[in-house]
């Protein structure tokens, strides 16, 4: 995977006060790869993901995106975040804007895209998630599943090179999880690079090509998904899988 490496993590450590959440993590992600990050709560999954676009400032270590060290103070992180879409557990649609404005705000204001052109693009994307009749709706009028599908296409409006998902289905009612996973599955099939922190073991196993088991702030196991689920080696992973499957 060296030829098309997109994101590289070197010796990433994150501490909050005396608590070490991530302890010397190194790994890398290739373009078009779909990787799931699983593990027990408090294992550092979300912190790991949030360090990748510096929503959380790493305590030490380096993150290279397209070969550029984004932890370097001289790097303009805003430019790189434009290329890294993020989807949150709590959706975080902008409450003061309708769906259309949510989608076109960043491309119009940051990339200076023509508003009409941005609207065309938004229409194309929103059709893919079947919510074209919601363009004028405000977030407060949407269900959780609808919000999350919009949040995904809002991130796609920026044509990101990688999409980071932070437990995208954890805040959803059970009957809405399917619709969001479906969108993510379709996205994976288009070749989008995806890093997904999730509790959905079926998604990890069937959709992602590789799964990372993060436990106690370290990568305890990192393998092709089928191998990891079929022949887990690490005893903590074995007991974790027994509990969740």
């Amino acid at each position: 995977m060296s030829g098309n490496e997109l994101l590289r993590v070197e010796h990433l450590t994150k501490t909050f006060g005396k608590l070490t959440v991530l302890n010397d993590i190194s790994t890398s992600f290739a373009a078009h790869e779909v990787v799931s990050v699983i593990g027990p709560s408090g294992g550092g999954k979300s912190t790991f993901l949030r360090c990748l676009n510096l929503l959380e400032q790493p305590s030490s270590g380096h993150i290279l995106f397209d070969g550029v060290d984004i932890c370097d103070k001289k790097t303009d992180i805003n430019l790189h975040r434009q290329k890294m879409g993020m989807v949150f557990q709590q959706f975080n649609l902008f409450n003061n804007m309708n769906v259309l404005k949510n989608m076109i705000a960043a491309p119009v204001k940051i990339l200076h895209m023509d508003p009409e052109q941005a609207k065309e693009k938004a229409l194309g994307l929103i059709r893919r998630v079947g919510l074209e009749d919601k363009l004028e709706s405000y977030p407060s009028q949407l269900s959780g599943g609808q919000k999350q599908r919009i949040a995904i296409v809002r991130a796609l409006m920026m044509d990101p090179e990688v999409m980071l998902f932070d437990e995208p289905t954890s805040a959803l009612d059970p009957e809405m999880i399917g619709e969001v996973l479906e969108v993510m599955k379709n996205l994976a099939q288009t070749g989008m690079t995806m890093i997904v922190v999730t509790h959905e073991m079926r998604f990890a196993r069937e959709v992602s090509s590789r799964t990372i088991f993060l436990d106690g702030g370290v990568i305890a196991e990192d393998k092709p998904s089928h191998e990891l689920f079929d022949r887990p080696q690490n005893p903590r992973l074995i007991s974790f899988l027994q509990k969740v499957l």
Partner: peptide, 13 residues
């Protein structure tokens, strides 16, 4: 909600 700020920053604002 701080998530509003985070979402905006994650888009590159």
């Amino acid at each position: 909600d701080p998530g509003q700020m985070e979402a905006a920053r994650s888009l590159g604002f």
